[in-house]
Design a protein around this nucleic acid. Sequence first.
DNA 1: CCGAATCCTATACGATACTG
DNA 2: CAGTATCGTATAGGATTCGG
Lengths: 130, 130
Amino acid sequence: MGTRQEISALPPEADLARADSLAREIFSDVANKWAFLIIEFLGQRTMRFTELRNEVGGISHKMLTQNLRMLERNGLVERTIHPTVPPRVEYTLTEAGEGLRAVVDGMCGWTQRYLGHIESSRSSFRDPAG
Amino acid sequence: MGTRQEISALPPEADLARADSLAREIFSDVANKWAFLIIEFLGQRTMRFTELRNEVGGISHKMLTQNLRMLERNGLVERTIHPTVPPRVEYTLTEAGEGLRAVVDGMCGWTQRYLGHIESSRSSFRDPAG
DNA sequence: CCGAATCCTATACGATACTG
DNA sequence: CAGTATCGTATAGGATTCGG
């Protein structure tokens, strides 16, 4: 009992409330800036490494590699190696990755909608510490 | 021209594609583990500092303070100080914060739905580096 | 072209101690 | 109780170099 496979009547967010350790681990992995940007851009189409790097912009070679490995490990991204010279490696979202993409899209929409609010909140904010 | 206030016919995610620097900055601030967890739990109800710390779990005093300041600066969280002894400080989501909460809820749902997929992908994953 | 390894710096983060 | 400051360590992250 208490396994992931149980069918639960609780709302999705209750899982975090129950301090589910795997769910939290996934949050830690996936809820970060680079992962979100990668998911967002890969959602547009399959891309090669360098192409993706250019699209995301501002990400180092190393960070892109690390994040792609992490996303691959979690089954959100699939890596296809074409054994040509020079090698051609393509990255695609899996079904799970597409599901996350919907979430990221939601965040993009949210950002758009509240951009003005956030901007004005920032300019009027005074840190209590001074 | 080119300001935030323009009405755009493009889909929300196109903003990131245009490398909008403010939108990216917001992504960097908000798309992180602690911010998401805080938003998620604060969405359930208004809470005091220590109460929230217990709910989130595993977050240090310092990190909670830092993230709450950041969320306040961006107008996602409102801080109310009751001038009593000892001080009572309550945190609540703003309307923008509630909007983001919907996104985080979406991610909780996604996590639930793909937990099994992720778990099995993890166990079969072999790092190409060995 | 893609990726691993190395080196180095900046920041994240935790622990602790102090203030109103 | 809530917050700040300071210190120490760990990890994130960039630049570069080498290899398949």
